[in-house]
Structures are given as structure tokens and as C-alpha cells.
Design a binder for these strands. Structure first.
Lengths: 350, 350
DNA sequence: TTCTTTTCCGTGCACGGTAACGGAAAAAAT
DNA sequence: ATTTTTTCCGTTACCGTGCACGGAAAAGAA
């Protein structure tokens, strides 16, 4: 199984009677090699199972490659901060392999800023790109350009159905909604459930919460056809209004005991929840933001479904460096990461 | 933040007026350097923030180090298979760093075989050891020997309270039992719960199920003081008896609806569960063995608490290679891995 | 002072691979 | 047959570190 001694270029040179220069040319498919020499070298390589020593290679090349990450700007404590943490972590290991990770951010509510970010990204001449697609059409334009430039890219969080991406790392969004409903109802039989939504979920944006809602609704329809789902809209920019909106809804619907929210901001309703401990609401939200974890531990939120954004970023970058440095294609294109179920008793270990 | 150009030994040599040989001696704390030269070099190193190029270093050293993993033998589908998968995976990345991973296994029910495994392990002259302690006393003897030899070691799965281990990667066992009870009862109010146990949980073995049981009992006592826990003992070697044992217990206790099991073998009771779908037992077990996952998907088991044995192994090996190759101490000694909550709707993504 | 020992340090090759340079051999053009 | 062009390939100088060898300088012994 194991070759006792790793075989080197010099060995191959000796065995074929050629020089290391020629062997190197064969290995890199460079021109200037006769058919005969080419096949002589290939034969030995296949028989002996040559594997290059990448460290020697890296050392000799001293080439710097750039992996470009295109991410939305965020406020501290927001979802994308978790992604960024993963990026920072993997920059180090990528750096060890001679790959530099550069970040370019944009305002996720401003198309123009996204366009600029794309332009800036291209100007850095990256060897690979990681991106979370927010604006559907603009993203398609951008990845098209990447394609013509031959730059591989990886989606995280959400993917578009263009067929040219190297890989995708994210949560199975429909399934996550389905799971959410399962956990929310815990196989009991609710007559009504409340879904809290953020107002501006609009325009041509690529948005995982849409699929989540679908999965959720399907579960409810399949298991509790008699159950009525209500939508409540809140405005994150006006926190003072949130409580009153919720108060009003729940005083009009006093029997609703189940609450779900499909974005990462379940923490927005904890103020309201804290005022009504006697109602024992069953509440399920998404993502392990610090504020959400706190709500979980305080017993205000029953459960969180989390998706390891850090891992997603990490694996996306790994996939690219693997390709760029080792020439290894990722083993699977669509990689769905686990959906972690967090309760107050296991949250601190995530 | 970033040094534009990485500084090299040659640079330091030039700047201090010394030769790279001397700089090298300083870097490795080798003898034969005068005070004056030593401090000159150190000064530059600290100011310029020199970081060695490990790949050049690895290339030059060409030294092979061995990380030895000591694991119980297992049948296909058992818990330790998951650990081994993680080991196989990380052998590759460790191999890239010039570290070879060797496995030595033993029969976890035979002390003598463990002793032999230890002997064999030492004979391989490892630079580091990973082990899951099963036999308490024998393990203490072994790690003592490792200590006197200056060989660092890492515990996985369980740890002993000796103070000399480099790191530990595992599940917080007590907490996992607590969580198990929480999920099993889902904050309702059971009058009775059944705990299924394996008979031979005996002799001086280090066993995570003991702590789990404790955590479980504490949760029950704290939340449902009126609840009665029953213990049922089954014998895994006589599968034909299991069903009848369970039948008998549950016919004597027809109101028991909650079942927990603290080892990885919840699949042993699926045959029984499958015969009584009308009872709608709530069943919580541990570990994502293939057989357990199947039971989950079949709706026989409500929930599994899983502990990523592969990750544990992976991180244990990483910790050792980091130390051996880069000289980096692990950031924390006791590393508790997340407890994953698996239901039928998220299990397939683990 | 002279000789020996110890301390300190520079030199140079090795590790495996890369890639530019230039020359020999083969093919094409004259 | 000679010249020009093209194809092919060997040589060589690195990349950043490690380490053995041997020599110079300093310290100690005579």
C-alpha cells in the first residue's frame, strides 16, 4: 500500500534517462517534449505512482495566489460575522499554502455597491472567488464574467442554479424549514402557529428564508392540515414598534402558543417574550448569533437551528485552495452542511 | 499588519552581520553561540517578527515522526468505526506535514491485550500518542511511561484526571445526560421513565455512560422529583432475549412511555419498538451509528445525541502535529465537542 | 610566549521542484 | 549540401532551512 520511499523527480529522470527539466515539463503539460519522452515519463509515473512534494513545489514557485471573498457588510452580532470568523480562521491555513485570502464587502441593500464590489474583486486578479449571492441578476452577470476569465468560484449560504460553480456549501434550506416545523410542534397538534417576518423581504434577492418558509408550510400542511399559520411583520429598524406589534397580535389571538422565525433575528422578539413568561410560548429560530444563544439560555427561545457559517466559509476556501494548490477537484459539488439543533443545554458547546 | 515580504534567515544573517548558520543555531537553541550574537539575533527576530518557512524546514529535515493511535477493536457499525474514519481522514493531512499516523488496536474486554498494545505502541517510538482510555489503571501506568519518555499524548472520548495530558477532545458526558433527559421529557411531566442498560458495564473501566446517567438523573430529580426511573438490563450477546426482556418489563409497567439509553446501542431495542407503534414511545439514544440513524428515520427513535467521534480524532491528531511540527501548544486543554441533536429530519446531513 | 583546548561561527551541500537559458539535434527551406 | 528554423532537452541557479564540517578566534595551560 505504502511506497517505502517517496519517488522524486530525480528518480524519474534517472529511470527514463532524461533530465529533471524534461520530467518537469511533462508533469506540467508544458510544450517542448517529444511524444516518445512524454510517454516514457508517463509510464514510469503511473507505474511508480509519483506524487509531487508540494512543499518543495511551493517553495520553488513562490507564487502568490489570491482567493477573493465577496461578503455583505454587517453590524457586530449579525449573521455574517460568523461567516467572517470562519474566513479569518482559514486564512491562516490557506496562507500556509501560499494562498492569500482577500475580503471585499458590499451593502446587501444596495445593488450599486454590489456592482462596485464585483469590479473591485476582478481588479485584484483573484485565482478563485467565494461568494454569497444576494442579488440574483447581478450575481449571474458576475459569475459569467468569472467563467470567461476561467476563475473558479464557490457559493456559500445560498446558491444560484447556474451550472458553472465549482462547489456550494450551505444548509439545505427547504429541509431546514421542515425541520423547524417538526421541532416547533414536536408532533403535538397546534391549531395555530405564528410566523414572524421582517418587512423588507423583497426585490430580486436570493433569500434562504423563502425556501425555509416553504418547507415549514409543507410540514404543517402534511401533519396538521387544520392548523392556521399567521404572518406577523416587524420592522427591525424600529425596535420600539416591535413589542407593540406583537402585543397587538397576541392579544387578538390569545391561543397561539407556537412562534417561528426564518431569518437569524429571533432575538428581536425576546423583549416581548420576556414580558409573557406565563404563556410558555414554544419558539424556534435560526442561527447561533450571540444574542440568540442568550435568548436560548434565558429560556425565552426553545430551540435554534444553526448552520455553521464558519465551517461553510472554511470549507469553501479549502475547496479552492485544494484546487489551486493541489489541483484536486472537490469531491461533491453541492455540500449540505448539518443543521444543528441547539437547546439551552447544548448551546454553549457550539 | 502584514509584512510585505516574509523575512528569511538570510535576511537576519545580513542584518546582524552573522551567517545563516549562526542564526539557525539561535533559532533552535543549539549551543555554540556567544551571548552577544544570541541577543543580536533575538533582537532582530522580535522586531521584524520572523516566522520560519515550515515547508522549507520540512523539506530540509526530511524527518519522519509517528503519531500513534491506540483504539479498541470494533465490529463494523460500532461506535469506534466512526472514530477510525476520522483518523483515516486526518492521516492524509498529517502525512502532508511529514507525520505518519499508526494505529494499534486492542480488545476492550481483555486487559492483557491492552497491555500488549501498549508495549507494541512504545516499540514504534512514537513522537505522540492519541488514546481512548478504557482500562483505568493500565492507562495510568501507560501514560506515566509516556511522561518519563517525554512523549506527549491526547485523550479522546474519555479522559482520566491525570494532569499530564496535552489535550482532551470529547463530549461533556455529564451534560450530555442532562440534555438527554431534557429532550426525552421535552419539559412535559413524565411519571416514569425507563433506562435500558447493558449488563456488563462493570470492572475498573473508564466509561462515559456513568456520567451520562448521573446527568440524566439529576435533570429528572431537579425537574420532575415525582418521576420514577426504572433500569432494564439487556444482554447484547443474546439478541433473542432482548425482546422478551423488554416485553416483560413494559407489560408490567404499561404507563411508561419514555425510554433512554446511554451507550451507543439504541438500535438493539428497535426490534421491540417496531412491534409497538401504538405506544408512541419517546426514545432518546446516543451516537450516529448507521443502525441508529436508520431507527431514527424509521420513526422508532425520537432523537439521537451524537458526538462527532471523527472530529474528535481529527482534532486530537491535529493538536499533536501542531505541537510536533510547528511547536504550537493547543489553545485549550479540555475541548468539549458539540453535542449534536439528531432527529429524523436532519440526520442525513451529519 | 607558545601550545593546546574550547568556544564560536562561516561555508557549503542537501532537500525536491521550478523555470529560464542556451545549445544540440532534427526538420524544413533554400 | 548548406543554411535556417523548429523542436527538443540538459544545465543551472535558485526557493528557505537544516546541519555537518572545519577553521578562526579566544581562553586556558605550559
Amino acid at each position: 500500500m505504502e511506497n517505502k520511499q517517496k519517488i522524486t523527480i530525480k528518480d524519474i529522470a534517472r529511470m527514463t534517462g532524461l533530465s529533471k527539466g524534461t520530467v518537469d515539463r511533462v508533469l506540467h503539460n508544458r510544450e517542448g517534449v517529444s511524444r516518445k519522452s512524454y510517454s516514457k515519463v508517463m509510464k514510469v509515473i503511473e507505474e511508480l505512482g509519483y506524487e509531487p512534494n508540494i512543499y518543495a513545489s511551493l517553495l520553488a514557485q513562490k507564487k502568490e495566489r489570491i482567493v477573493l471573498v465577496l461578503l455583505p457588510k454587517y453590524e457586530p452580532g449579525e449573521f455574517w460575522e460568523l461567516t467572517e470568523e470562519g474566513i479569518t480562521e482559514s486564512s491562516e491555513s490557506a496562507g500556509n499554502l501560499g494562498v492569500k485570502v482577500e475580503k471585499v464587502d458590499y451593502d446587501q441593500y444596495d445593488i450599486e455597491s454590489f456592482r462596485n464590489a464585483c469590479k473591485k474583486a476582478l481588479s485584484l486578479k483573484p485565482s478563485g472567488v467565494v461568494l454569497a449571492p444576494m442579488f440574483r441578476n447581478e450575481t449571474l452577470v458576475f459569475v459569467d464574467k468569472l467563467n470567461t476569465l476561467g476563475i473558479p468560484f464557490v457559493y456559500i449560504d445560498t446558491k444560484l442554479e447556474s451550472n458553472s460553480y465549482l462547489a456550494y456549501f450551505g444548509m439545505p434550506t427547504y429541509q431546514s424549514g421542515y425541520l423547524c416545523a417538526h421541532i416547533l410542534t414536536d408532533e403535538q397538534d397546534p391549531k395555530e402557529v405564528a410566523i414572524v417576518r421582517i418587512q423588507r423581504d423583497k426585490f430580486g434577492k436570493s433569500d434562504p428564508t423563502i425556501n425555509r418558509r416553504e418547507g415549514f408550510m409543507d410540514y404543517i400542511a402534511e401533519h396538521f392540515p387544520a392548523c392556521t399559520p399567521y404572518n406577523i411583520f416587524i420592522n427591525p429598524n424600529k425596535p420600539e414598534e416591535i413589542d407593540s406589534t406583537l402585543e397587538q397580535f397576541f392579544s387578538e389571538h390569545p391561543d397561539v402558543r407556537h412562534i417561528a422565525m426564518f431569518n437569524s433575528r429571533i432575538y428581536l422578539i425576546t423583549s416581548f417574550l420576556g414580558k409573557h413568561p406565563e404563556k410558555k410560548y414554544r419558539v424556534v429560530g435560526f442561527d447561533n448569533l450571540a444574542a440568540n444563544i442568550k435568548a436560548l439560555k434565558d429560556g425565552l427561545v426553545t430551540c435554534l437551528i444553526a448552520q455553521r457559517p464558519g465551517d461553510q466559509a472554511h470549507r469553501a476556501i479549502s475547496a479552492l485552495t485544494d484546487l489551486l494548490v493541489f489541483g484536486r477537484e472537490p469531491s461533491g459539488r453541492d455540500n449540505f452542511m448539518p443543521m444543528d439543533v441547539l437547546t439551552r443545554y447544548n448551546a454553549e458547546y457550539y
